[in-house]
Amino acid sequence: METKTAVDSEPIIKTSNVCLFYGESQALFDVSVDFPGNMVTALIGPSGCGKSTFLRCMNRMNDLVDGVRITGSLQLDGHEINDPTLDVIDLRRKVGMVFQKPNPFPKSIYENVVYGLRIAGVNDRDTLDSAVENSLKRAALWDEVKDRLHVSALGLSGGQHQRLCIARAIAVQPEVILMDEPCSALDPRSTARIEDLIGELRGDYTIIIVTHNMQQAARVSDYTAFLYEGLLVEFGATKQLFTNPEKKETEDYITGRFG
């Protein structure tokens, strides 16, 4: 499949001919996408099409799954992600991730945000304080929690949890933030807030978001990749893909004829 290169921005993650196998069965077939820097790219497709699997290739979260084998090339800033000599910890600091289900740690709000810094060995009080304030402000959570930073994060609501997880990802100042259906466990109001937040983060971070929700993809992303049964069907500017798709399958999917 030919590679669709983004037009107006230098790609930060380049992938070419990525194949992924779970033991014997293959989940991704020659996927090649170049993700433009400081833009929001959406990965859409029906359940089980491999979009989450693809997303998790980019910070090597698939390492945690036994029997996964990846071929092809994934590059971040020109460095091969799957290089066995690559420092995974360093990679994951550059490529943050927000999960489908909010997963705050059973610690205070403050400690949740500085977790990534603390494990990196940062213990300077002032640095941590300012990181907390900045990250929470960027995640639009500061005003709600500034008076109870040292209270357990588990007492927050679901939407606040997810914003806290975003703040936690931002705190280590990654280049890329991967979002794996970040709104699927949230109510519409919280979803709207997260979408606003993605709009605000755009321009400073490269965001790759997996979503089931077509409207959401259309609302928040600059580029969209449509995957179907492990194959990349179409990749292009969101506006174009949603208004004038090149492929028949894409049109069928976004108009709700299947999937």
Partner: peptide, 17 residues
């Protein structure tokens, strides 16, 4: 939950941390 482990690992923590 698996998500908690992943959350920590995704922030660059080692397994031990």
């Amino acid at each position: 939950p698996m998500g908690v482990r992943e959350g920590s690992l995704a922030l660059g923590a080692t397994k031990f941390q």
